[in-house]
Simulated scan of single mutants.
Amino acid sequence: MKKLALSFLVVSGLFSSVAFADLTYGLEVGVRSQSGDTDASGVSTDSQTAMQFGMFGILPISGPWNVRTGLLYTQRPLVLKSGGSDGKVEMNYVDIPLNIMYKFEDYAGVYLGVNLAINMDKKCSLNNCNVTDVTSPLIPLTVGASFKFAPNFGLNVYFESASGKAAMAGGAELKNYRAVGANLLVTFD
């Protein structure tokens, strides 16, 4: 009970009216290039362009240090090539970023952290392909930078690496996901 009360006090302090006075929040939408590996013989993977969109918030901690979080819908597809035929594995997630951000100025900063990525659906378009046992939650490590180029518009660029796995029919696995992306930001600060 004491831990619950202490957690409530900490969260209340983070979300106090003083902290919300400097809160930056908004929407983001963009593209990402997703890649990964497979351990199946005779099967290779190719990167695939996907989308990411949702909302974000930047909450000040102290001085230039901030917490960057949000709620994002993220596509993590891969192209599989096997015996002259191509297929697409689609895995869609809801991400909750938990990043520490250092702001150089009000309009620019860098961040590092993890995403809590929860798998929403999965499918494969290759014949006799079935995706099972997808790592969820997936916890990719993310490093990125965001900056504003106009008062309410900006850009977020990032690199993401995750060691999650997805089992496929026949014992093959997809693993070692990586992505680079760029999102357009619309802020409401």
Results as ranks from 00 to 15, higher is better:
residue 2 K to W: 06
residue 3 K to P: 00
residue 8 F to V: 14
residue 9 L to H: 01
residue 11 V to S: 04
residue 11 V to R: 00
residue 14 L to F: 15
residue 16 S to G: 11
residue 17 S to F: 06
residue 17 S to V: 12
residue 19 A to Q: 15
residue 20 F to E: 01
residue 22 D to P: 03
residue 23 L to I: 11
residue 25 Y to K: 05
residue 27 L to T: 09
residue 28 E to F: 04
residue 28 E to I: 03
residue 30 G to N: 01
residue 30 G to V: 02
residue 30 G to A: 04
residue 30 G to C: 02
residue 31 V to W: 03
residue 31 V to T: 05
residue 33 S to D: 11
residue 33 S to T: 05
residue 34 Q to E: 12
residue 34 Q to H: 09
residue 36 G to N: 09
residue 38 T to C: 02
residue 40 A to V: 07
residue 42 G to K: 09
residue 42 G to Y: 09
residue 43 V to K: 01
residue 46 D to C: 01
residue 47 S to V: 10
residue 48 Q to M: 10
residue 50 A to V: 07
residue 50 A to D: 08
residue 53 F to L: 14
residue 54 G to K: 06
residue 55 M to G: 15
residue 57 G to I: 05
residue 58 I to H: 00
residue 61 I to N: 01
residue 63 G to N: 06
residue 65 W to N: 02
residue 66 N to F: 09
residue 71 L to G: 07
residue 71 L to M: 06
residue 73 Y to P: 06
residue 83 G to W: 02
residue 84 G to R: 04
residue 89 V to W: 02
residue 90 E to P: 01
residue 92 N to C: 04
residue 93 Y to Q: 04
residue 95 D to A: 12
residue 95 D to E: 12
residue 96 I to C: 10
residue 96 I to F: 14
residue 98 L to E: 07
residue 99 N to H: 15
residue 99 N to K: 10
residue 99 N to M: 14
residue 100 I to K: 00
residue 100 I to Y: 06
residue 102 Y to E: 08
residue 109 G to I: 06
residue 109 G to R: 08
residue 111 Y to Q: 12
residue 117 A to G: 13
residue 118 I to N: 10
residue 119 N to Y: 03
residue 120 M to E: 12
residue 120 M to G: 06
residue 120 M to K: 10
residue 123 K to L: 00
residue 129 C to W: 00
residue 131 V to R: 00
residue 132 T to W: 00
residue 135 T to D: 01
residue 135 T to Q: 00
residue 136 S to K: 01
residue 138 L to C: 02
residue 140 P to N: 03
residue 140 P to E: 03
residue 140 P to T: 05
residue 141 L to S: 06
residue 141 L to A: 15
residue 141 L to T: 14
residue 142 T to M: 05
residue 144 G to L: 05
residue 148 K to W: 03
residue 159 F to W: 14
residue 160 E to M: 14
residue 162 A to F: 13
residue 169 A to G: 08
residue 170 G to N: 03
residue 172 A to W: 05
residue 173 E to C: 07
residue 176 N to S: 15
residue 178 R to G: 13
residue 179 A to D: 11
residue 181 G to P: 14
residue 181 G to R: 14
residue 187 T to P: 04
residue 188 F to G: 10
residue 188 F to V: 10
residue 189 D to T: 07
residue 189 D to L: 11
